[in-house]
Amino acid sequence: MPHAVAVTVNGTSYPREIEPTLLLVEYLRETLGLTGTHVGCDTSQCGACTVLVDGRATKACTMLAVQADGAEVITIEGLAKNGDMHPIQRAFAKEHALQCGFCTPGLMITAVDFLERNPSPSDAEIRHAIKGNLCRCTGYHNIVNAIRSASAEMRQSAGARPKVAAEVKR
């Protein structure tokens, strides 16, 4: 039986009638046509489908779209603001942190969540944070560099406050 849901994706609310079986990633890719979020596995391992749901890095293959009713979702398509790339996007390009680009959106989204909670991470913390995102091209070396480089830029701009407290109330 279809459910009426309204998910806000990249700032726009999309009211849709969907089946409960629909995964969030299928809703994004197939219902809304936002194909920047990718599917790389079927066992919740690879992290290619990671999006922000109410600020939390979420594997969109492991969440039902109906569970996102009323939530705010940010996908790779919504990371840039008014044409200005997010620091993580600039850093990935600058540090050559992507090759084929398939895992890249998920990795950047995970990094955004991570850096908002840990603005000055060590390399070991960065590596731990992206353990749920598999990349077969880069060997992670430049991804670590990019996340470190983005953290420096994000620290300079304001607003990097821990969000964990807000999560408790949800």
Binding site: T50, R56, T58, T110, D113, G132
Partner: peptide, 9 residues
């Protein structure tokens, strides 16, 4: 537990 995304949700 798992990884960052699993812990977040």
């Amino acid at each position: 537990v798992g990884d960052l995304q699993v812990r977040a949700r």
